[in-house]
Structure formats: C-alpha cells, structure tokens
C-alpha cells in the first residue's frame, strides 16, 4: 500500500471518533460520531438516531465531511498530529447491506450494540470522494477516490 494511503488507513483504524459536518440551508453543523471504515477506504459508517438534527440535515443535503485526527491536546500536536478530512455524501445503509455494515461497525464499537440495533437508529455510510490529509501543521495532500465530481 502507498505510504500516504497507509497513514490514512491507520488513522481510520486507530481513531474511534470523528467530527461530522452536515449542513442545513447552507449553515454548517458539526457533531461527534463513532465511525468505522471499510478496508478499501471508500466507505465510512456511522450511526445516528433518526430524530437527530444531523439526520434531518442529511435528508436535506447529503453532502458531508468528517474530520478524524490523532491530536493529544498538547502543543506539539501542531507538528505531530495528523488530521484527515473525508469528503463525500452520506445516506442510510439500504436493507440489502445492513447486516454486513452493522457487523463491521460493531466490530469496532461493540458497546454500541444496543443503540445500533434499536429501531430508532439509522446506520449511515459516507461514500468518500476525497481524502485530505494534513500533517505537520501545513503539509496537505489529497487522495481522490472517484473520478472527480465537483467538490469544494
């Protein structure tokens, strides 16, 4: 695997939580979510209640980004921490793929079993179009997964 790709995979595997940005009427809205990514890095799963604001936002605009980082809340984070932004679109996982996606998600977050299995919970997947990886405060590299759609 490519060096940068490896680093992206590592961040996705080692971190549990990320900051999800959705939007409503052009206004951004961020929340913390637990996530799990597929091995090919193309999809990221997260779970949310159907009555949350983020879920409502997704129904209006499926474009999202998710920030995942390994900061430790110390000054040297500026140089040592890496931050990964996944940019793409998010939808609820369809019935045909629900079982597989659920077990992938629960493998990483077994304590969320009850929540994920409850009827009010929606398991969602982000189809990633682009990763943007920031290292050392100022080095920014991007990885495009699909042929480029217009992405900000």
């Amino acid at each position: 695997m490519h060096g940068l790709q490896h680093l992206i995979a590592e961040l996705l595997n080692n971190q549990s939580l990320g900051v999800l940005a959705t939007s409503a009427a052009g206004h951004p809205y961020t929340t913390l979510v637990g996530f799990a990514a597929t091995d090919d890095l193309r999809e990221i799963l997260f779970a949310t209640h159907r009555s949350t604001r983020k879920f409502a936002n997704l129904n209006g605009d499926e474009r999202v980004s998710l920030l995942i980082d390994n900061r430790t809340n110390r000054a040297d984070d500026f140089r040592r921490a890496a931050a990964l932004t996944a940019i793409g679109t998010a939808q609820e996982v369809g019935a045909e793929r629900r079982d597989g996606s659920r077990s992938l998600f629960l493998e990483k977050h077994p304590m969320l079993k009850e929540f994920v299995n409850s009827p009010g919970c929606a398991l969602c997947r982000i189809k990633v179009k682009r990763y943007s990886l920031v290292q050392r405060f100022q080095d920014v590299m991007e990885l495009d997964l699909d042929d480029l759609d217009p992405v900000p």
Binding site: H2, G3, L4, S132, R136, F137, Q138, D139, V140, M141, E142, L143, D144, L145
Partner: peptide, 13 residues
C-alpha cells in the same frame, strides 16, 4: 518518488 497515482498536493511547506 513513491507518491504517485491519485494523490496530489494541496499545500506544502
């Protein structure tokens, strides 16, 4: 240069 393929630089220091 191992960095090739779909990667591209957005900002470098």
């Amino acid at each position: 240069n191992e960095e090739s393929g779909n990667f591209h630089a957005r900002q470098l220091q």
